[in-house]
Amino acid sequence: MIAVTFGLARYGYGLLLPDMQSHLRISADVAGLISSSAYLAYLAANFLVVWLTVRLGPRWTLGAAAGLAAAGMTVIAVADGPMLLATGVMVAGAAAGLAFPPYADIVDAEVPRVRRALAWSTISSGTGWGVALAGPIAVVAGQNWRVAWLVFVALAIGVGFLAVLRTPSRRGIAGPSVKLNWSWFVCPRSGPLLASAVLVGLGSSVWWSFSVDAMREAGIATTWARIVYAVCGAASLLASLSGSVFTRLGLRAGYRIGVVLLAVALLLLGAGTGQLALVVIAAVLFGASYAAVVAAQGLWSAEVFAERPSAGLAAINTALTIGTIIGPATAGLLVGQVGYPVVLLAAAACCALGLTCAPARQAA
């Protein structure tokens, strides 16, 4: 489900953007605004997911996520202009907002504490599975980007059915009742975590939205740029090992290592956008470190928001989304003035600032 809703429905836009821009005559600033619209829908879904999970349980929530993913990507596949494309991107983006938080409650209820780091890092690496799968599909489809989106739709329907079938159905999985108010979500203990999510969202969204187009503009063939994008996704699978790193070194150290590698990846892409060897290295670093940082934030959230894990994770996703709304829109406006390399270096700086926010030393 994470592979479909994030790797395909949410990040497929950046992968297929060059051909869609060409066929639908979309400028970089409009492309950035469309990308940000997906994050706005994701933000709205993060508010809705808490109510859905508490009231209906994770099975219904994940079913809705699969339905939105399939519907949104279908609209994208038939889009004949920027408005219809933006509509599809927004619907597909909302799917990711519903898909992730229910797994916080599922892990909390179903997985022994000693195995939660491994379980959560594996779930977080799902984005990588989706991106790794989307890359080859896009390469085979070539300029037929509509075909690629329709294949994504078929995968969303199939995976959604299986995920719903395997999801615990009981409504009480979310644990004890807690009064969800502003002071519960935003407090001194959650401040560093929320700030971390905003900063990582700012920097990482530039990669997901514009890395393929940046490589293409620097002289790398679109096919090779998409292969690099797929490499990024495959590298994300390495983050499934991050649970062992968190266990050995602690969550604080593991998080900081991930943030440093994330910033280095964006620096490499910005400094060597047209050099295939460098961008491959950057893709490996970015894929592995991004998924590891998301996993660290998920574990960190479980400590900070222990009374209601899914609501806490929705809050983190909301903070991440604030960054990802600002990131692509700002990057799209700046690209025409300063170029992709400078924009990518600025994105690296945003991620590096995440070092100022880290889990408490005692966090497990």
Score class of each variant (00 low, 15 high):
Gly130Phe: 01
Thr74Pro: 06
Gly172Tyr: 05
Phe6Lys: 00
Ala134Gly: 02
Ala99Glu: 00
Ala117Trp: 00
Ser37Thr: 01
Cys187Met: 07
Ser22Met: 14
Gly72Ser: 10
Ser310Lys: 00
Val186Lys: 08
Leu202Asp: 05
Val178Ser: 09
Arg170Met: 11
Glu110Cys: 07
Leu180Ile: 11
Ala221Trp: 02
Ile137Trp: 05
Ala70Asn: 00
Met73Leu: 12
Gly336Ser: 03
Leu194Asp: 09
Ala292Leu: 10
Leu40Ile: 13
Pro82Phe: 04
Ile322Asn: 10
Tyr39Ser: 04
Leu313Gln: 06
Ile2Gly: 14
Ile157Asp: 00
Thr318Ile: 13
Arg116Asp: 10
Ser244Asp: 09
Ile26Thr: 08
Trp184Pro: 03
Leu261Val: 12
Gly93Arg: 07
Leu278Ile: 08
Ala295Leu: 10
Ile281Lys: 06
Ala360Asp: 15
Arg189Asn: 12
Ala156Asn: 05
Arg256Tyr: 04
Phe161Lys: 12
Cys187Ile: 01
Gly160Gln: 02
Leu261His: 10
Cys187Gln: 13
Leu320His: 12
Val186Gln: 09
Ala271Lys: 03
Ala234Asn: 12
Val107Asn: 00
Ala79Asp: 05
Phe152Gly: 00
Leu299Thr: 07
Val107Lys: 02
Gln337Lys: 09
Gly270Lys: 00
Arg252Pro: 10
Ala230Glu: 09
Asp19Gly: 10
Val153Asn: 03
Val164Phe: 06
Tyr255Gly: 08
Ala348Asp: 12
Arg55Leu: 11
Ala71Cys: 11
Ala174Asn: 08
Ser125Gly: 14
Val231Lys: 11
Val140Gln: 12
Ala141Leu: 10
Thr53Glu: 01
Ile2Asn: 11
Val284Glu: 03
Val294Ile: 12
Asp108Arg: 03
Leu56Glu: 06
